[in-house]
Design a protein around this nucleic acid. Structure first.
Lengths: 196, 196
DNA sequence: TGCAAAAAAGAACGGTCGTGCTATATTTAG
DNA sequence: CTAAATATAGCACGACCGTTCTTTTTTGCA
């Protein structure tokens, strides 16, 4: 079982990178197999269909996101430090890690926002979870007394994530070297409005 | 010449809709031709290559955006009314018109942010233009004395567009019926911070 | 009304797509 | 060490891809 699981992991890892470039629809088994020096059918045998592969890639990306963004932030002290850590990690993720050249979730949001099916459902759930996570972290700021007691934490999450999205466009597509400064300025303003 | 230009327009119109669903890469000549009851080669003859078609579709979408978003807003009085009109139109556009079920620019931003070539270049220019337009409209707010004299209009545009992006995700993918309320709340906060 | 020009169709090309099936290697367990 | 289980390869399939070439239909003007 060890060997199979091992190559399976390699496939998913490479698939995440590819997905960040061409999306989950653009992902091709032939390409993926060639890059991993596997035969197309050998690769295919690990997944029963392309859709199953897509779902597994999405799941693997979610785990990566939790590992690199969410979990490390939870290690920071509750309240503003944790919110700040979450934002820092989020921007790093949007900038792109070694495995994903770019945040795959924003791409997939666009790819699947009007394409019904299991992939869309899983994606929507993951994004809803992300909103919830941001809101929950913001709530620790309320609990610690750093944020206003009447702060709408879901609104906070909405704006928090919006900054990440426009950051990625500015950084990746427009290649604006002020993107970081702009994102942090927007974030600071959001923090300021949230403080008690 | 009339007939040719006419069908050409029909092709582009339908292509915009398709692009908003599957992107410019996912666009297929066969599909497009079938939907328009044209032969694939008959359609192809109007454009010398798929890339040329992609560029024309992008150009047509830009014109649509200017017609439905930018131009009507310019008709509103300078200052906050114009900024407000621009935001309203922007959200309508993100929600999707009859021709494009969803804002194609956000999708294309993700599709091309790491795919070099003429399409990416044209897209980046169009998005840069959009940032410039928002900044310019914000500047009328400064001129009219409604906004702070030291307002960073590019920062304003950055945050303005970010709200539109997260709005589209909330509205389209997450189907949050509070999306409108959230977007306007964020926008009001941005206005408040910008006022003198 | 007839004729040149423009538009559309038809057919074919080399590729790649996702997906089966069958056979061969490789790994694992007794 | 061997036998069963697992993993990978090879091959073929029908479908669709973008593109080219040739032929037919339609259009607009003299």
């Amino acid at each position: 079982m060890t060997k199979g699981e091992d190559t399976r992991q390699q496939i998913l890892s490479r698939a995440i990178t590819l997905t960040s470039e061409v999306g989950l629809e653009g992902l091709s088994l032939g390409n993926l197999a060639a890059e991993l020096k596997l035969s197309k059918s050998g690769l295919f045998a690990h997944f029963k269909s392309k859709e199953a592969l897509q779902l597994e890639v999405l799941q693997a990306a979610i785990e990566l996101f939790v590992r690199d963004v969410t979990r490390p932030a939870i290690a920071a002290p509750r309240g503003i430090p944790r919110v700040q850590a979450l934002f820092n990690n989020y921007l790093s993720w949007a900038r792109g890690s070694s495995k994903a050249r770019t945040c795959i979730f924003m791409g997939l949001t666009q790819e699947y926002d009007d394409r019904p099916g299991p992939v869309r459902d899983a994606l929507a759930k993951s994004q809803q979870d992300w909103h919830d996570t941001v809101a929950r972290v913001a709530a620790t700021g309320v609990d610690e007394g750093a944020f206003r007691a009447d702060l709408d934490t879901r609104q906070f999450a909405f704006e928090f994530i919006g900054i990440g999205m426009i950051y990625q466009q500015s950084y990746k597509l427009l290649q604006d070297e002020k993107a970081d400064r702009r994102a942090y300025a927007a974030f600071e303003a959001l923090l300021a409005r949230s403080r008690r």
